[in-house]
């Protein structure tokens, strides 16, 4: 019986749930994370606006590692295989994930794509997300770290306008710093001030994927996070 008016409508039964709405995605992300960790692969979720320079930065990353570290990538795009092609040309085994109308990678898309790739052969695997400062922020993919590429041409106020993207970010790559002399209206300090208002402990590097500026520090940051690869178990036959 309805408690409000006694009208005889079917009773309403409340059920308390209290669970994360994206719990399904989180479960698959935890599964991906376990795979990456077991294989000793450092997985990086690389995010940023369209045109921030994510692909150019990965091309520069491949040059900076000089083939000494095995890189791999999947690249999320609404349409075209352009980013995947560019990464393969740069020497990074890569697969494009065409998301159609979806504006972000999610853990299931990543999981299904990993099944078609020899990702275990990489030391560092990049999940290059769809260019977007909004939607990718709330989807855990199973990465070890979130890195946001923020180019100086986007303006100093972007962290303030997209706080969700930056609050869980482990590193911000302030990209295209070679253009700063042509942009009198912005300064590196303006960017770092904005970051300090959305990240409690802002960590950032000034880089240029185009000129290679700052790539040594980026490579060092990645190397410092690489997990220790587990030695494969060798079964010894007793005579």
């Amino acid at each position: 019986m309805c408690n409000d008016c006694g009208c005889g409508d079917p009773a309403l039964v409340p059920v308390d749930v209290h669970e994360r709405l994206l719990a399904g995605n989180d479960r698959v992300a935890a599964h991906n994370r376990a795979h990456f960790q077991d294989a000793g692969v450092l997985a990086i979720n690389l995010m940023g606006s369209p045109g921030a320079g994510k692909t150019t930065l990965l091309e520069a990353t491949a040059r900076a590692f000089q083939g000494k570290t095995r890189l791999g990538a999947m690249s999320g795009d609404l349409a075209t295989d352009r980013d995947g092609e560019r990464l393969r040309l740069a020497g990074i085994p890569a697969k494009t994930v065409t998301t159609g109308t979806s504006c972000h990678l999610d853990a299931t898309l990543v999981h299904d794509t990993l099944h078609d790739m020899a990702w275990q052969k990489s030391d560092i695997f990049f999940l290059e997300n769809v260019g977007n400062l909004v939607c990718p922020a709330i989807y855990d993919l199973g990465q070890a770290a979130n890195v946001v590429v923020l180019s100086v041409v986007e303006g100093e106020d972007k962290p303030l306008k997209y706080p969700v993207m930056f609050k869980d970010c482990d590193l911000v790559l302030i990209n295209k710093v070679d253009l700063l002399p042509h942009l009198p209206q912005v300064s590196l300090q303006g960017f770092t001030d904005a970051l300090s208002r959305v990240m409690p402990e802002p960590r950032w590097l000034a880089v240029s994927g185009w000129t290679g500026d700052g790539m040594d520090a980026w490579v060092a940051w990645l190397n410092a996070r690489r997990p220790v690869r587990k030695v494969p178990r060798v079964s010894v036959k007793l005579a």
Binding site: A11, L12, V17, H18, E19, R20
Partner: peptide
């Protein structure tokens, strides 16, 4: 920062 499903109210047979 939470996005939670807190409660659902269900219509059941009286």
């Amino acid at each position: 920062d939470a996005l939670l499903l807190e409660r659902v109210e269900l219509e059941v047979q009286d």
